[in-house]
Computed example of a mutant assay.
Amino acid sequence: MTVLLLNFSAPLQAWGASSRFNYRDTRREPTKSGIIGLLAAAQGRSRSADLADLAGLTVGVRIDQAGQILEDFQTEKDWRTGKAKALTWRYYLADARFLVAIEGDKDFLTGLSENIATPKYPLFLGRRSCPPASKLVIGLTDQTLDEALDSHPWLASNWYRRRQPKKLQLAISQDCPASKTPDEFIRDLPVRFTQRARQHELRPVRHRFTWIDNPDGVGNDDHNNHDPFALIGGDS
């Protein structure tokens, strides 16, 4: 098996798994439905296309830069009648970065990598208002999914690294194998994306952590000489 590594980075991302109607929430990590939707768009699949081959891929996500939840309260008026429409609340993740690992057949993932590099349709990180800020494809590796998620270099911004401890844990969420007990069930496994009859099934998910070193991080001595104004500055 082979693993395709992707970099999900953008000013705004949105990964809803249970939101409906006027409230559009977001999880703190990409959903499998959102990842498969991006892959399907890269291949140019229609909303009515069969998704079984993409849904069968094993997916894992490492939270390299935890985003902040941003609420967008929207009002709208029908220009034809002048009447106000229903109020809506949309939630986004701001300044988040994720390492996304997809495990599957080497030839199939090689094709997917090429599709993502030159997509048939525009690609978004959850919603159409969330285009990626950088190149998505990192590359292919012969490591296992766990090995890739544990060993790949940290993707966080420099300013974010300087605010973290010198040794920290990164949260990982991934498809739970049948041999293990899942930590959570998320309804984000797509069966179909058609507008009138969208359908998602429950997906067993495993949560864990991996340790990384952060030479630029804050240590005990740094806390003793804390300068609050230093947090105002920063670069990406």
Rank of each mutant, 00 (worst) to 15 (best):
I63C: 01
G111M: 03
R208T: 06
A117F: 00
Q68C: 09
P131R: 05
V100E: 02
G139N: 12
L125F: 02
V100Y: 03
K85L: 15
K120F: 14
E201K: 09
H152R: 07
W15T: 00
L140F: 10
A55R: 13
W211G: 10
L170I: 06
P131K: 01
V191C: 01
Q65E: 13
K166P: 04
L168M: 13
R128G: 15
A66I: 05
A55V: 09
L189T: 06
H226L: 15
D221C: 11
M1K: 10
D72M: 05
A10T: 02
Q195H: 13
G44T: 10
Q169V: 13
L5H: 04
A96H: 02
A117C: 02
T81W: 03
I138R: 04
L4N: 01
R192E: 14
P182W: 01
Q13R: 00
D235L: 14
A49W: 01
L189N: 10
W211H: 12
V137K: 03
R97T: 14
L39V: 07
A84T: 13
P190Q: 02
Q74K: 08
T58A: 13
D213E: 15
R24D: 02
D227G: 08
I116C: 04
P11R: 04
T26I: 09
D105S: 10
D72S: 04
A17V: 04
T58I: 10
I138M: 07
H223E: 15
N214Y: 03
I35K: 02
D221E: 15
P122R: 04
D216Q: 15
D53E: 13
E103M: 09
E147I: 02
Q65Y: 07
G139C: 11
I186Y: 03
G234M: 02
T118I: 07
L149V: 07
D150I: 05
G34M: 03
A178S: 15
S151W: 15
A94N: 12
R206V: 09
E184D: 10
D107G: 08
V137A: 08
L51F: 00
R97P: 13
T210E: 09
V191A: 06
P177S: 07
G139H: 11
G234T: 01
A96T: 06
N214R: 00
V61G: 00
